[in-house]
Structure formats: C-alpha cells, structure tokens
Write a protein that binds this DNA or RNA. Structure first.
Lengths: 208, 208
DNA sequence: TCCTCCATGTAACATGTTACATGATTCA
DNA sequence: TGAATCATGTAACATGTTACATGGAGGA
C-alpha cells in the first residue's frame, strides 16, 4: 500500500481556520450553556465551581480575544454606573460549529501530570512519621475537595430542579457525569491514602 | 494574634537553593530508585511505562542540566564504541535531601486539566450518533490504556519477584499504589463512558 | 532502502502562572 | 481602615510541545 500519509480529516474545517486551544473550546462549551462575561468565566473555571479544567482570569481574557478574532464569539458591551463596564460573550454560529466538531473528534488523551502521585513514588525515602504526616494532610485536603464537589453536584440539581441523571440532550448531561466521576476518583484517592496510612502504622512500633 | 505573615518553612533549605520544578523532583524520585541516563528517563516518563507524570526527552535533558547545576545530581560519562556516549546520572546527598524535603511537604493540589471531561460537557450539543461514536472511540482507547497499566503493574511484581502490596520501605511502595490507583480511575472513566452510551442508546429510536 | 533503536541536545512556539495595574462599592 | 467584589487587562516568567539536528548499527 502506498497511502502512507493521507490528509485524513480535510472536510471538517477549511484549512484557513485559526487553531483554538483546549481552554478556548472549554470556554466555548460554557458559553454554549449560558452567555457570560470573562469575569464570570474566570469564576467558573476553577474550584470550587469547576473540577475539570482550571484557568485564571489572566489566561482567559487573552483566549477570549483570540476566539473573537477567530469569529467564534461576539460580545455586547454593557455600560454600568456603579460597576466597571462589562462584555457579555456569546457563541456565534461559527463557534457552535467548531465546538461540535471538537467535541466529536477523538479519542482524547489528556497527558497525566499528577504531583501527588509523583510524591507517592518518593514516599519510601521518608521516615514513617514523615510519610504519615504527609498522607494525613493529603487526606484532609481531599476530604475538603470532595465536599466542594458534592456541593457543586447538588447545586446543579437545585438550579435545574431536577434529580440526575440528566437526559442526553440536557445541558448538564455531560458536566454532571464528569463532576460525579471526578468526585469518585477523588474518593478513590482518599481511600488509597487511608490504606497506605494503615499499612505504614502497621509497621511502626506502637507508640502513644 | 499578630503573626499574620510568618516565614513558615525557613529551617528546611537555605534560601539560596535554586528552585526545582516538579519534573525535576520526579526525575530525582526515579534516580533514587536506580541510576540511569537521560534517555532511559525519557523512556520511563510516559506511557506505556508511566502514568503519573509525562515528559519527553526534549524537556528532560534541560531539567537534568539544571539539577546538575543545583548540585542534586552528578553523572559519569560512559564512552561506547558502537553506540553514542552516554551519561549515567545519580542522586547526590544534596539531591536525596531535597527530594525528601519535597516529598514531605504538602498537601499537594495538582490542578485538574482533563480535555475529555471538557468534551463531555459539550456532548449535549451533538447528535446522538456523533456522541455515541465519540464515546465508543474513547472506550477503545481507555481499554488499551488499562491493559498497559496492567502490564506495568505485573512488571513491577515480576521484576521484584514479590506480590503486592509492597512494604512501606520498599522502592515500589508508592509507585505501585499510584499506578494501581490510576488504573482504578481509568476503569471508572470507562464505566462512565459505557453508562453514557447506554443512556444515549436508550433515547434513540431503535434502528438496525 | 528505509525504519527503528540508541543517545544527546537545541530552537521556536504554545500554554499556564504570578504579579502588576486600575477604580468604585460594599461590608466588617 | 482595610478587605472583598466586580471587571478588565498586560508583562514577565515558568513549563511543555513540536520540530530540527546528528550518526552508526541492525533488522525488514
């Protein structure tokens, strides 16, 4: 066969389309649910109101400007007296199209980069009391995160006055599943921490 | 109380220590287990032989140079006839010290950045057949990853001729737990994908 | 003949973080 | 009086990706 390097996905988008970063698509995914300002997006992109893709406002504003240039979003400027002016962003048809195209294509491998797991690999180098202390602090943090995710999930239910699961065409179909999954994952991490704590304690001479 | 902004962790490291990136510590964690070359590190830092923190060789070599400058690693140069020369890196005492210090301190929040989860939030914008296709491709990829993790776990057992769990002082104590946890997490994601597929199919008119 | 493995690196670019900048309002 | 909220941005820096560069050995 001589078809080694074919173009593959030509039809989807005209080749002149400027590339959009993952964060760009993430913001569009949110704008597909609700029109909002950059400030509001910055509140939503990170704990305690998001656990899927974090970003700060200093990254979000430039990306919104790119999306504007790419014709994927527009905004209407609102002049306020008591507050600074704001720009309310919304998806254009072009934006909807590119969002759907991104959502369709896959599979999607997100490279793993988990600092806590790396620390686990170095845990054997510590004295048992130090390892225990580290794990116990992690347990506390993870518990707090789980609480936040729980609040977020219940919030989705309350806001829509529905109890999950949400139907496939509902705006919260995927986000609910993703946050629930993240919560489950965090719980598994918590359980592992506790198990490791127990195993380390098991090898320590009983003191106190 | 008037102790608002105290130095906190002064004693640990002299303030002149150059900062080390997470990847730097990750490489040191590996070097604590076994002396090796940059090339070998690059093979280990990524699938299918690592699922905790990914990095490519082009990032690893500069970081090793920094660690050398910081006095955390040294290398001995091996001249080879049939192969290019290589540098075998190992931790210095300084490196051990800083590695332990990093491993102890916490808790560690790794910011979430999961593209697949973001796509899930946009899944409701797709036609059911497109959503199904996307999820099915994801299922395939996740299954393959789980197989790789399984192989990796069994590899740890075979290499040490031990069956887990590894005791707390063993080099593989933490890495085994971390990989096992990552596998568990991936399985949960897979299960969620399958559940979403079933729910979408449930709302589609039966065809074929 | 071309590809992969070994083994090291650099350069250009994309992405993400921290800190700086402004300024009125409201609450403790 | 000082901090938090709303609302927008920029600049400097750190981190990560993609592509380029070299070169011999051994297998398909």
């Amino acid at each position: 066969m001589t078809e080694s390097s074919e173009p593959e996905d030509v039809s989807e988008t005209s080749s002149s389309d400027p590339p959009i970063s993952v964060l760009g698509y993430g913001l569009m995914a949110r704008l597909a649910q609700i029109e909002c300002t950059g400030y509001e997006l910055s509140l939503v992109m990170g704990p305690p109101r998001n656990f899927l893709w974090e970003a700060k406002h200093s990254q979000i504003y430039p990306v919104l400007a790119e999306l504007k240039r790419a014709g994927c979003v527009t905004y209407s400027r609102i002049t306020q007296e008591t507050r600074p002016d704001k720009k309310i962003y919304r998806l254009t048809d072009r934006g909807w199209e590119r969002l759907r195209q991104w959502a369709r294509q896959g599979p999607t491998r997100t490279p793993v980069r988990n600092e806590f797991f790396m620390k686990l690999t170095a845990l054997w180098t510590l004295q048992p009391p130090d390892a225990l202390e580290m794990l116990e602090r992690q347990v506390e943090m993870l518990s707090a995160e789980i609480d936040m995710m729980d609040t977020h999930l219940r919030d989705l239910e309350v806001r829509t006055d529905m109890r999950p699961p949400f139907p496939p065409h509902h705006e919260y179909f995927g986000i609910y599943a993703a946050v629930a999954l993240t919560k489950q994952t965090t719980e598994a991490t918590l359980a592992t921490c506790r198990e490791l704590i127990a195993r380390i304690q098991g090898t320590m001479p009983a003191s106190e």
